[in-house]
Design a protein around this nucleic acid. Structure first.
Lengths: 108, 108
DNA sequence: AACATGTATCTTGTTATGCAAGATACTGTG
DNA sequence: CACAGTATCTTGCATAACAAGATACATGTT
């Protein structure tokens, strides 16, 4: 899978999954892996960034299957960001697809 | 415009435009700019890479409007790459969109 | 008890790519 | 002659994904 394609996109994916339900990091890897390859070395730094930027907050919850889980939940700002990023992604893919089919001429 | 989204994608855009017609660098910037912001500091290193990888070859052609133009044309290998990258891009966007609408569950 | 496996989090160093800013140079116009 | 438009190219910076490894808890196996 083309690593470069994922740049910036995994961020929307994480925000989008969190928009549906709170998740812990390991769970996010599993959820997103159903569609896109993603490694733990990617998700944890990304989650830290999202927290630093105020898009998510966290809470700890114990587990019977292993060490405690750190759940992430969207803030108000995170929901807004999720919405805006999604719109930008749609605009971007529309623009790229227009180029790929060769219909990018202005007026002819 | 989200810079990260473009990572790896501009390469397909260039290959795709070149699949329709030979272009020189400055012309590619203008063509692609109709849909996506792209700067000259991006296109020239990218074109060099494509040449190093054997996806394009070049020829010079004089111009009455300025300095000589360096035209790029796809090689056989370049056409193949263009096709494969495009397919990968389609698969990728399909996967991302599945995640964004929350329909990424296995069997329910 | 020792070990492996699955669960769970996190860090370090590497790699790739896009961009801003600038250098260079040719042509035609004021 | 200076300037704008055309055209190519380079340097240094920022960003984000990844591989590999460290840590630690719970359970099952030898």
């Amino acid at each position: 899978m083309n690593i470069q394609f994922k740049k910036g996109v995994l961020e929307i994916c994480v925000l989008s999954v969190l928009a549906h339900k709170d998740c812990y990091g390991y769970e996010l890897v599993n959820e997103i892996s159903k569609q896109i390859d993603i490694s733990e070395g990617t998700i944890y730094p990304l989650l830290r960034r999202l927290k630093d930027e105020g898009y998510v907050t966290t809470y700890l919850q114990e587990s019977v299957e292993g060490p405690p889980r750190k759940y992430y939940l969207l803030t108000e700002s995170g929901r807004k960001e999720e919405h805006e990023l999604k719109e930008e992604w749609m605009r971007f893919t529309t623009a790229v697809n227009a180029l790929l089919v060769g219909k990018n001429d202005a007026a002819e």
